[in-house]
């Protein structure tokens, strides 16, 4: 038996074309919902309770309501990066082991790589792109700059989103507690000491 899965995306569009399509559609809709697909994905959604291989989902991303048609296999991470052009969330391991894809769903930090987008009907998603208030950075974003808490920066969006979750959960009582509750985010540059300091700084500002 072959173990090769079929291609993840039925669409022949390149990623660049794909993102461009998405942005064009978004730009054409002045005040209404952003609707992505179904033409861009090739498949029509089913209206029955049990869907076919793709499904229409309405969710809120960074305060903006969207209706998208997703291949059921699409992760939230791929929806963000490949379909919505929000490339802040990073694909590290794609298996829930590194934390680079961490976002907030309904206020809770989760691994977006293990979250199927099809399950997010009505959900509110916050990514690193939605954290600042206008030009004003979130205190933890500012703290990462103040503490120089990164080198290559690849894990940083996930670290910050996880840190926001850590702050909300009130697990910032000591450096030890922060380390334990931030352990779902790996940093190959080894900036852990400064990341802990950044979370401590943001906790003091709260």
């Amino acid at each position: 038996m072959s173990t090769d899965p079929p291609a993840a995306e039925p669409s022949a569009l390149s990623r660049r074309t794909f993102v461009a399509t998405t942005v064009a559609v978004g730009g054409a809709v002045a005040a209404g919902d952003l609707v992505v697909g179904p033409s861009a994905f090739g498949a029509e959604p089913s209206t029955a309770a049990e869907t076919g291989p793709s499904t229409r989902v309405s969710l809120v991303v960074n305060g903006r309501r969207l209706t998208v048609v997703v291949d059921n296999r699409t992760s939230l991470l791929d929806l963000l990066r490949e379909h919505l052009g929000l490339t802040g969330s990073k694909k590290g391991c794609n298996a829930g082991a590194c934390g680079a894809c961490t976002v907030l769903v309904d206020g809770r930090r989760v691994n977006s790589c293990l979250t199927l987008a099809v399950r997010l009907e009505g959900a509110e998603v916050t990514t690193i792109e939605g954290l600042a208030k206008g030009e004003r950075l979130h205190p933890l974003q500012q703290a990462f700059i103040d503490q120089d808490a990164f080198q290559c920066g690849f894990c940083t969006p996930g670290q910050i989103m996880s840190g926001v979750g850590c702050l909300k959960e009130g697990r910032t009582g000591s450096a030890e507690e922060i380390r334990e509750w931030m352990s779902g985010n790996l940093c190959r540059c080894g900036c852990y000491v400064k990341i802990v300091r950044a979370v401590e700084q943001a906790a003091r500002w709260k």
């Binding site: 899965p5 291949d71 199927l116 099809v118």
Partner: peptide
């Protein structure tokens, strides 16, 4: 990943 149908109950 192989394709699958999806139902919410």
């Amino acid at each position: 990943m192989y394709p699958f149908s999806y139902t919410r109950v």
